[in-house]
Amino acid sequence: MDQRLSHAPDAARDVPDDALLVSYANGDALAGREMVRRLSPILFGYATRVLQDRAEAEDVVQETMLRLWKIAPDWRQGEAKVSTWAYRVTANLCTDRLRKRRGSQINIDDVAEPKADLASAVEAMTDVARSEALTEALNTLPDRQRQAVILRHLEGVSNPDIAKIMDIGVEAVESLTARGRRALKTALSGRKEELGYSDDG
């Protein structure tokens, strides 16, 4: 498909991602800019949630987009979703950085057992405290679990797409997110006393 958009920027918004990429590969600069506008905010949000660092998230997204431009001439329409491919590259780059940062993953067994029920703990928290609590709880998860949970519950990506992004089966995604949820409940319940709320007080 040789659909150029330089003459009509507004028309670019209706063009599918893969057609845009092919158009970019054929020399259409505006198609590339439209891809940046579409993909970058999504990838940046995801990378920021995973890495908890805006500067690192920017590096990861920039690297992802550079790789996208590189493969653009070889992209075959209809074989894969561009967004899924980009998510996958971003996820892998995030994993690399997390591994370097941590050196080793935190085992789910290391997470503290709950000391109180989660529902009452969450109810007592302020919005900011809730966000911080969830972020910190997410950080206790092993990398793969965290990425699966973020993709599923915060980015709203479907399980089949997560399977493609993480290069695993759908059942493995379900298992990761289920274990992630259990671990989060465990970690968050443990925060009840930490935040000053307990069953008897």
Binding site: E113, L118, A133
Partner: peptide
């Protein structure tokens, strides 16, 4: 480990707010 449905609802509320 908590299997209380209220905990699932609370976790979903956290996700919703975070989104």
């Amino acid at each position: 480990m908590t299997d209380d449905p209220r905990d699932d609802a609370a976790l979903d509320a956290l996700f919703q707010a975070e989104r």
